[in-house]
Design a protein around this nucleic acid. Sequence first.
DNA 1: ATATTAAAGGATATTTTTGTCCTTATTATA
DNA 2: TATAATAAGGACAAAAATATCCTTTAATAT
Lengths: 145, 145
Amino acid sequence: MFSKACQYGIRSVIYIWKQSLNNNKVGAKEIAEHVDAPEPFTAKILQELVRKKVIGSMKGPTGGFYVDKAHEKFTLKDLVVAIDGPGLFEGCSLGLNQCSETNPCPLHTEVKVVRTHILHMLTAKSLKQLAEEVESGETVLARFI
Amino acid sequence: MFSKACQYGIRSVIYIWKQSLNNNKVGAKEIAEHVDAPEPFTAKILQELVRKKVIGSMKGPTGGFYVDKAHEKFTLKDLVVAIDGPGLFEGCSLGLNQCSETNPCPLHTEVKVVRTHILHMLTAKSLKQLAEEVESGETVLARFI
DNA sequence: ATATTAAAGGATATTTTTGTCCTTATTATA
DNA sequence: TATAATAAGGACAAAAATATCCTTTAATAT
Ligand code: FES
Ligand code: FES
């Protein structure tokens, strides 16, 4: 469903949100450790997300990645589109040159239903809410077993 | 959602079902042309599906790929698992080492809902039914525009 | 029997994804 | 102003997915 880059990205950004709840900026190394992802690769993904304004960053000592009010408008969906592109939501899922209502592929009708639920999954809760659920221990971003 | 191999595989197998409705075996070349997929790559995928018994094949003149009663038990889900593996249905979709109910990732609950609908999409109709819908012109396996 | 046809198998090439490493630019602090 | 810390950028490496081609095997038809 998601590429590895996207999985790392989602986990990282929720971690950044979690730390930003307490006004902490976090470095790529700390992020990678806490979400159990390869550090240099994760750093590249975060770089890209900064370029796309989904998160913020600051160089130098006390620097790192962070989010604030300006980032609250972004959802997991934006994140997924930023990394994996819109393929999960647009285009024919059987690879035909376009998704067409008048000339549908065999999966088209069901795909629409599934896409509705994927969209719900990625927009129902804000990234801040997801971070709070991690903070409270309700959910986890890594499992070291 | 699906790899290219899987997209080609789905389109090809539905085409094979469609032709088998009229007891026609079909060659890799004909299949690839009708579903608009690269021929040698498609042939490889079909080879693999024959190994996994999802479809049948015969060598020699009048040979080709086909399906019969013995294949009616297979659904799109089996096809997808045969090509892409079970990742769409099993394991943590955020890439944690396992999918866990007691230690869930932030998406776990919603992922379960989405998976239910994906499963429905891939099992609600038989491959034969999907082939009949193509036969009747209700749906299409390729669009050359 | 022989020729022909089509799938099976294996080797190889290309592209994309995943991952690493090193240098440069920017910022904070002493 | 010098130093240290950190992100940014670019080059490179490895692995996986995508795609092609050639040889071998099996079946049919003549
Ligand atoms: S035409 Fe294939 S998903 Fe819409
Ligand atoms: S724990 Fe991540 S999907 Fe279940």
